[in-house]
Nucleic acid binder design. Structure first.
Lengths: 142, 142
DNA sequence: TCCAATTTATTAGCATGCAAATGATATGGC
DNA sequence: GCCATATCATTTGCATGCTAATAAATTGGA
């Protein structure tokens, strides 16, 4: 079966492929610099709770770009680690209200400087202008 | 526990968070337009095999940004679907040589126009110049 | 020729990521 | 008051994604 070097479709030129690679590099830097118990998605959930206070699980998922099944698992693991607590909402029995525990609050506050380093390192090959441009263009395709 | 709207660290401004969202939008478009049996990673593997001809599993993983355990699973599923075949390399018994079957070749050739649409749709909100800029900047952070 | 180091692949385990189905609860129109 | 529709959460199942451990095979230097 002959190879197709003259194929017009180039994987390396596809936005999806390069997004995946950029994402992988970022998560690699994240796991290098952040505490082992904090994955990108867990950290995002904690930051949102820090920003917003108590949220329903559904709302927390929406604010962290996570599917309902995914946020369920993330909240379970954060609760197992004592970083959040969930209580059934008193006004709406369908809802779980999620909030940071004191330990969770301290953990996320302690991790934020490191997370800032993660971001810095991820974009370290770019100038300030390039960083702003990249963020703006990525925002346009989300 | 008071909220922290004045927190300096903004999740929405972190490259990792926005990369994840961009990636999710892309994979959503991908699953909308591509045949059900082709996921982004399977498709990438097939395209590489089309481009390069026979590859070792390890090499295929490297060329598709997949970990050795991940590419093992992807190749298994492609083989289960009759899209690739793997044969132990005759010169190096550690290696599996992976190649497209005729069915795999036809499937990937048929899917490429759709994949082109996926890319087009993902970046449809950008001008031509912006697309080039985005690709260049992403390439700089991989 | 021997063996340490390296390479390739497999396996196990944990963590997302998402579609689809399901159940409980809330909402709003008739 | 009833009921269709919507919302929130859970569950199941499949697909990555990766680390770490393991085994088999290759390589290259002593």
């Amino acid at each position: 079966m002959t190879s197709n070097q003259d194929l017009k479709y180039k994987l390396d030129d596809q936005i999806g492929f390069i997004l995946r690679r950029a994402n992988q590099r970022h998560t690699g830097i994240f796991s290098d610099l952040m505490p082992d118990e904090l994955t990108p998605t867990r950290f995002a959930a904690l930051v949102r709770l820090l920003e917003c206070g108590t949220l329903s699980q559904n709302q927390l998922g929406r604010l962290t770009a996570m599917d309902v099944a995914t946020i369920k698992g993330v909240v379970d693991r954060l609760r197992e680690r004592g970083l959040v607590e969930s209580i059934r909402d008193r006004n709406d029995a369908r809802r779980q209200s999620i909030s940071l525990t004191e330990r969770g609050r301290m953990a996320v506050l302690a991790a934020i400087p490191r997370a800032t380093e993660v971001t810095e390192k991820t974009v370290s090959g770019l100038s300030e202008t390039e960083r702003d441009t990249l963020m703006a263009l990525l925002a346009k395709i989300t």
